[in-house]
Amino acid sequence: MNKEAFDALFEERVARRLARVGFVSKGKSLAFCDESIVLSLFRLGGRMINPGSISYILCFRHSILRDRSEKVPTRFPDEVFDYPYKFRPLEDGREQPIYRPQNLNYQYELLHWENVKEDTVSAKLDRITEHVEVHFLPWARTISLAQAKSEIERHGENAWCERMWIEDYSEHLAMNGD
């Protein structure tokens, strides 16, 4: 399989299917945004890419949170580090999502497509789409502000961004409840 064939397969098996549930393309990444949540499937580049493969990560944030510039974004944040929750869609899709600190480095998935049969690549892309549709998006829609705050407090490492997110959750909960 070559790069063009892979990109077409990704468009068919992931981007179009996720578009039906509200995801939009942002370059080679996909994002779901509503008034309360943002869920992004980032296609990574740079040092995280190997020839004949793509690297990707699924990220989640509540829309009330500030980003690294200490402002609440008015559009979808396009930097992985602006999201508290980071997941590998195939590996982490088997368990209940929970906050794990990944503030300086993060784990991502590598999907090889070069010299791999199309049906094998299609099956992996279908699994990614299924995990996002069936597992991650429903979870993201139901995780409360209080639960996210509690998870960051309990599992965090007291990083600057975690303290900022906890403060954002606390202020919003004090003003509005959950």
Rank of each mutant, 00 (worst) to 15 (best):
K3R: 15
K3V: 08
K3W: 10
E4P: 08
D7S: 14
D7I: 12
D7M: 12
L9A: 12
E12N: 13
E12K: 15
R13E: 15
L18E: 08
A19K: 15
A19N: 14
A19Y: 09
V24G: 05
V24I: 12
S25G: 09
S25P: 09
K26T: 07
K28Q: 13
S29C: 04
L30K: 03
D34E: 03
E35R: 13
S40H: 13
S40I: 07
L41I: 00
L41A: 01
R43F: 06
G45I: 04
N50S: 13
P51I: 07
P51A: 12
G52V: 08
F60I: 02
R61G: 03
S63M: 05
L65H: 09
R66W: 06
R66V: 08
D67I: 00
R68I: 09
S69L: 08
E70Q: 09
K71T: 12
V72P: 05
P73F: 02
P73I: 02
F81V: 04
Y83N: 00
Y83D: 01
Y83K: 02
Y85L: 00
Y85G: 01
K86E: 01
K86N: 01
K86G: 00
F87N: 01
P89Y: 00
L90C: 14
L90H: 11
D92K: 02
R94I: 06
E95Y: 11
Q96R: 03
P97T: 07
Y99F: 15
R100F: 01
P101K: 00
Q102R: 00
N105G: 04
Y106T: 05
Q107T: 03
L110R: 15
L110D: 11
H112I: 08
H112C: 10
N115Q: 14
V121Q: 05
S122R: 15
D126R: 14
R127Y: 03
R127Q: 15
I128V: 15
E133Y: 07
V134L: 11
H135P: 10
H135A: 02
S144E: 07
Q147L: 10
A148K: 05
A148N: 10
S150F: 04
E151L: 03
W160S: 13
C161M: 13
D168G: 05
Y169K: 10
S170G: 09
E171L: 14
A174E: 04
A174R: 03
M175A: 15
